[in-house]
Amino acid sequence: MSRAPVRIPPECGISLSSPLALADPYPLYEEMRALAPVVRLGPGGQVAVTGHDEVAAALDDPVRFAAQRSRGTPAHDVVARIAREGRNDLSVRAHTRAGHLVSAWARTGTPDAVDLARRTVAAIVMDILGTPASVQGSRPGEIEAFAAHLANPAYGGQRNPAASAAAALYQHEREGDEGVWTDLAHHLGRSRVQREDIRAELIRYATADIDAAIASIATTIHLLATHAEQWHLVRTRRASAEQAWREAVRLDPPLRALRRRLTCGTVLGGYGLPAGCDVWLLLGAAGRDPGHWTHTGDQFRVQRPIPVRTLLIDTAAPGDLTHLAAASVLGALAVRCATVAPAAPAVRHPHPVWRSLACAPLTVSVGAGFSG
């Protein structure tokens, strides 16, 4: 049997940074996908991938489709391993704190989805950085101030005094396991790990996925507010908060495109790609590909059966902390609020890669399960 001939990707004249793409990229994604799942973006040699199966194949092959910048370091991975061992306690605290945050947020005169997302992520990051529970929120506006600080692109986590407490906490809890500290010292190129080393790595671990966490949570709340029937399914527990979050990330991911560089020539979806070319993996397009998601791919359906760990979802909104923050605050929202509806049109940040809300004002009514 002869092999199918390798094709050259068709060229399209669409710019991923045009005003149309920044405002709403999805109609342009459909245009591109109508040409082919793999297209050339003009004469510059860049390629865009819109098909779900093709994007998934590229994500699953990080050797050929190489990231130009690594997300983490071996030392980061060691600290993540330490932190995961305390995840159960952290999860309990996160869910408890999320309930209190939603209670306070629902009472404000102008509740906003982005504000709630920032407050939740701020509280979890403060917890991981070792801020004692007795201190968190004890000063007026502390959580709010830190949440606003997280919105600043020039976030200076190194100046956060809570990190030194975190270092002491983890040193105390792990002092009996020399293997962990030996691993960390090895990856840092030191003979012995110092408290300052733990402090720095904890900050990197706790703040690595802040943007994705805030954006994905805010988008999920906004979609639930604009789809009353889907909110009712979550509110009545016919769909879980995590299901709603995964569906929101599929439909409108915070990270809508990833840039990869081919280390060698390859064939993707039947189209030949040369070594060295830059490839844009359009996660937002893959999440709505009707070839994979059927004709409902552009609809928000919280009962859609998406596996708990899906490469597309985990790439578009990465990090254990993102999952934890989403599950805790969306679960609390469903328990404590009977209705959530838009109070005014949401406003988005214009960006060719990140898709996030600047604000999403809401009206909220407290439910029977609400407690202060």
Rank of each mutant, 00 (worst) to 15 (best):
G287R: 09
A368Q: 06
V102F: 01
T236Y: 09
V38L: 13
A285V: 04
C359A: 10
A104V: 11
H323S: 08
P342T: 12
A346S: 15
G269F: 06
H187R: 05
H186C: 10
I217E: 13
P43L: 01
I214K: 10
L184T: 14
V249P: 10
D61K: 12
A113Q: 11
R261P: 02
V353S: 07
H295E: 14
P153F: 01
I198L: 15
Y271E: 07
A145I: 04
P153R: 00
Q136H: 13
D77S: 09
D278C: 06
V55M: 04
C277N: 02
L281S: 04
A341P: 04
E11C: 14
A325G: 03
A360D: 08
P140N: 12
R336V: 02
A4T: 10
I124Q: 07
L262F: 05
A185V: 14
E201N: 13
F370L: 00
L169E: 07
V55E: 08
S2Q: 06
P161T: 06
L311T: 13
P350H: 05
E11P: 00
A208I: 10
L223T: 11
E144N: 08
D278A: 05
G72K: 00
L357Q: 00
Q230I: 00
N160A: 02
I221K: 10
D197L: 06
A166Q: 07
V55L: 04
R336D: 10
L129T: 03
V234R: 06
P132R: 11
H232N: 09
F300N: 10
T296L: 06
T182I: 11
L188A: 12
H349F: 11
R119K: 09
D53P: 01
V234H: 08
Y26Q: 12
G369V: 04
P74T: 11
V47E: 02
Y29I: 03
G44R: 02
S216L: 04
Y271G: 07
N160V: 02
R190G: 13
L41H: 13
D177A: 12
A239C: 01
S240W: 00
A208L: 15
L22V: 04
G372P: 03
P342R: 15
P345Q: 15
I214F: 11
E242Y: 11
I14C: 00
Q243E: 08
V92H: 14
G297I: 01
R118P: 12
A122F: 11
A358M: 11
V102I: 03
P253C: 01
S91P: 10
V308N: 14
G156I: 04
E196G: 15
A148W: 05
V47N: 00
V39T: 02
A257V: 14
G156S: 07
A275N: 03
V366Q: 06
M126C: 12
S328L: 05
A57S: 06
A75M: 01
H52F: 09
P132Q: 11
P153K: 03
D252K: 03
